[in-house]
Design a protein around this nucleic acid. Structure first.
Length: 485
RNA sequence: GGUCCCUUCGUCUAGUGGUUAGGACAUCAGGUUCUCAUCCUGAAAACACGGGUUCGACUCCCGUAGGGAUCACCA
């Protein structure tokens, strides 16, 4: 019997949650769900300098919007904020980390160090000059008997190595995709466990919490590979069992380089505001670094949870392609029933739509559904709600229409108006009328239909003409045609 | 610079010694009695390079190059 799977997502409130973080959260969520385990949300806020108040709210809002509901965490569901068991700064206050520091100190696996930042800078500079990596060792430590003076606590790597006979020269571990990874013990720094302000460092708090929260699988970004050996060393030093580590390939920006302001380092909530569906974003993200080996492209969250597997995670970095996200989003929009879509559209309607009734909007949605890439695209359909401003540029830009004299255009519109006035005004009847008009005027559809569309919508494009007119209704159609003739 | 990770169409990827190297996005062309979109059909488009191993390498090994991470009292 496998032990109960417990995964976690542990963001820091130092900025907004971007898609790289979402992908990490998603994989942890999927793996927990797949195994009937728990997905835990922990807040790593030990860095008081970079702490951003809105950061927490932003993380919660993002995960809530995406539907990545944690089973345990500092936020579980609406109204249950700040469950302090999962907030590192609160845990620190209640002495969680201090007692482990004491243990380590007592067993000689850690030591106190009063070295100043200035001294450290000097040592680093020296190492740089000598073209080697800087490693802190116990014999470099500044000792002082006065423990009330600010100082840090460091792990004594050599002492750990001696105590733990398990390894000769390496810290080794296995991952599902990358296989065996290792790091020389001699290359591991005597890293800091407790800062001079008494707070635990990430490296320390992370290990303690993952152990206390009984995390079994840690899925995290690639950038943590380098510190994994430190973590494992710490697990051993404390006599804990280390979790299974799985390092995820990075997601690069649109230019193939690291995510940055210009290339996709976007606040997750911006995707919501720009009309993306959470399931679409998730589906897209899931396939950045993972796929199920079939040719299926569209997955629901549930399907992802069923099919996800650690073994099929890629190990090479992926580039974020917004065009593909748009396509995926369009696919999700098209799969929805018109009614479900209506529910999700919320306030993406143009402002002019606020007085229209649900029935009318549903009809518009029926026509619009196939042409939406994002919910925001609905903004283009303002002409269904208010009379649009004539824009002669549309006619001038039209290759065929621009060749026809204004007099002829006026005549055609008048003729159309007259014919339409006596039409039944169902979309079928309108189509018949239009076809008859084609015969009567001798014009090609490219000219007549374009002309009518432009004069009724003043938009560069619209749904099929007969459907559009039917929805607009006879009165509106005729009145718009009258105005311009 | 040390250590570590990565390398299939422009992009996401399939592929685990023998394939016409497959799919999707994007692009281009055509079709769906007008536009835009949807949908359909088609085209162009890739194994970073060099050595091995092998009857045979995209697949295994070793180099090279390129990209990335890390080397914080940040996470």
């Amino acid at each position: 019997m496998e032990k109960n799977v417990r995964t976690r997502f542990a963001p820091s409130p130092t900025g907004f949650l971007h898609i790289g973080g979402v992908r990490t959260a998603l994989f942890n969520y999927l793996y927990a769900k797949q195994n009937g385990g728990q997905f835990i949300l922990r807040l790593e806020d030990t860095d008081r300098e970079r702490y951003i108040e809105e950061g927490v709210e932003q993380i919660v809002d993002s995960l809530q919007w995406l539907g990545l509901q944690p089973d345990e965490g500092f936020w579980i569901s609406e109204g249950e904020h700040q469950n302090i068991e999962f907030v590192q700064s609160k845990r620190h206050e209640s002495g969680v980390y201090g007692k482990y520091i004491d243990t380590l100190l007592a067993s000689g696996l850690a030591y106190r160090d009063w070295t100043s930042n200035e001294q450290l800078d000097q040592l680093r500079e020296q190492a740089k000059q000598e073209k080697r990596a800087f490693l802190f060792r116990k014999n470099m430590a500044t000792t002082e008997s006065d423990e009330s003076q600010p100082h840090v606590v460091r792990l004594d790597v050599s002492a750990c190595a001696e105590t733990i006979k398990e390894w000769k020269d390496f810290v080794e571990w296995d991952e599902p995709v990358r296989g065996n990874l290792h790091q020389k013990l001699a290359d591991i720094d005597d890293f800091i466990l407790q800062k001079s302000d008494g707070f635990p460092t990430y490296n320390f708090a992370n290990v303690i919490d993952d152990h206390e929260m009984q995390i079994t699988h840690v899925l995290r970004g690639d950038e943590f590979i380098a510190s994994t050996a430190k973590h494992i060393l710490l697990y051993k030093a404390l006599g804990f069992e280390a979790p299974q580590f799985v390092h995820l390939p990075v997601i690069n920006g649109t230019d193939g380089k690291k995510l940055s302001k210009r290339t996709g380092d976007t606040n997750t909530l911006d995707y919501r505001d720009n009309g993306y569906l959470p399931d679409a974003l998730l589906c897209f993200l899931a396939q950045l670094g993972w796929n199920d080996g079939t040719e299926q492209e569209i997955f629901t969250l549930k399907e992802l949870a069923e099919k996800f597997s650690l073994e099929r995670i890629n190990n090479s970095p992926a580039t974020f392609d917004e065009k593909r996200l748009e396509w995926v989003n369009g696919q999700f929009i098209r799969q929805l029933s018109t009614h479900d879509l209506y529910e999700k559209v919320g306030n993406y309607w143009p402002d002019s739509a606020k007085d229209s009734d649900e029935k009318y909007k549903l009809k518009i949605l029926e026509l619009a559904q196939d042409r939406l890439k994002t919910l925001k695209d609905l903004q283009q359909f303002g002409y269904f709600f208010t009379d649009p401003q004539p824009n002669m540029g549309l006619i001038e830009k039209n290759k065929q229409l621009s060749k026809i004299s204004p007099e002829r255009r006026a005549e055609l519109i008048k003729q159309t108006k007259n014919a339409l006035e006596s039409s039944d005004f169902t979309s079928e009847a309108i189509q018949e009328t239009l076809n008859q008009l084609l015969k009567d005027t001798g014009e090609k559809p490219g000219i007549l239909f374009s002309l009518i569309r432009i004069h009724t919508t003043w938009a560069p494009f619209s749904p099929q003409l007969n459907e559009t007119l039917a929805l607009l209704g006879r009165d509106t159609t005729v009145s718009r045609l009258s105005k311009t003739s």
